[in-house]
């Protein structure tokens, strides 16, 4: 029992500090995920308020808004060990002036990671368990008030080829055949990301925003989605295919 009191004092004096700079090797580090939004397989320049021509449908498309949930991020080590981020919910918002979105991931155990897994959307439990916080706050505007659930993806804009000159895709749905939650794993193609607690490695991901109109879907087929259902599922399937690994900066 004699060791208990000194132990207590050590805990007390160290636990309220902000960081654990006790001189030893760092046990945790950070990385960032850089989402680089491009247009089509060639990854042509993409930005809001710019008219683009769809490489497959040839439709003219101008985005005015693109926001989506990136959630439940996981990193996998070479030995298969998986680290899961707690409370892992973010909204990626393409800005008016830049098409890149950077997401900081903190307190990752140090190590070499070879793959990242993430979900576009919000898992079913967070759609059904009442008022949430952070990126899941209803005030973030990615939430239906009349039929409870998160709007996983908001893609809006204009097109002379859409029936009313506009498109508005609000994609969500978490139940049964309406489930529009999609998860992807991107392997880093042999170039592991090194989380060492000192560097600030980057995982670069390409996002092909032309993917909404994949598989023969045109703006003429679907130009408005305002609730869960078959069209939302089509768009969720298409958009998850938009994400591909681009590179690592250690």
């Amino acid at each position: 029992m004699a060791f208990i009191l000194p132990l207590t004092l050590i805990f007390l004096t160290s636990a309220c500090k902000d960081d654990d700079d006790n001189g030893s090797q760092p046990t945790h580090g950070d990385l960032s995920i850089e989402l680089d939004h491009g247009w089509g397989p060639s990854h042509a320049a993409f930005s809001l308020n710019q008219e683009l021509t769809h490489p497959a449908t040839q439709e003219k498309i101008t985005f005015t808004k693109l926001r989506y949930y990136v959630s439940n991020i996981e990193l996998t080590k070479a030995d298969g060990e998986v680290w899961k981020e707690e409370e892992s919910y973010r909204i990626a918002t393409v800005g008016q002036s830049t098409s890149g979105v950077s997401m900081e991931i903190k307190d990752i155990p140090v190590g070499e990671y070879e793959a990242i897994t993430f979900t576009i959307g919000v898992d079913a439990p967070r759609n059904t368990s009442g008022a949430q916080t952070g990126a899941l706050s209803p005030s973030e505007g990615m939430f239906w008030s009349w039929t409870t659930g998160y709007i996983f993806i908001m893609a809006e804009g204009m097109s002379p080829d859409a029936p009313n000159g506009q498109f508005m895709y609000h994609v969500g749905g978490f139940e049964g055949s309406e489930n529009a939650i999609r998860t992807t794993t991107l392997n880093f193609a042999g170039t592991n990301v090194n989380v060492n607690g000192t560097g600030k490695p980057k995982v670069k991901v390409k996002v092909n925003t032309a993917r909404f109109w994949h598989g023969g879907i045109s703006l003429n087929d679907i130009n408005a989605i305002h609730m869960p259902g078959a069209n939302a599922v089509v768009m969720a399937d298409n958009f998850i295919g938009a994400f591909s690994f681009d590179g690592i900066e250690n």
Binding site: S129, G130, A131, P138, S145
Partner: peptide
């Protein structure tokens, strides 16, 4: 359409026929 008592008030707070507020402004 609303699956939880905590979430229910969001509908009248934001519906343009009811209280018509924007949650961010309200907060």
């Amino acid at each position: 359409g609303i699956n939880h008592i905590e979430i229910q008030p969001v509908a009248p707070l934001t519906d343009s026929n009811e209280m018509g507020h924007n949650l961010k402004s309200l907060l």
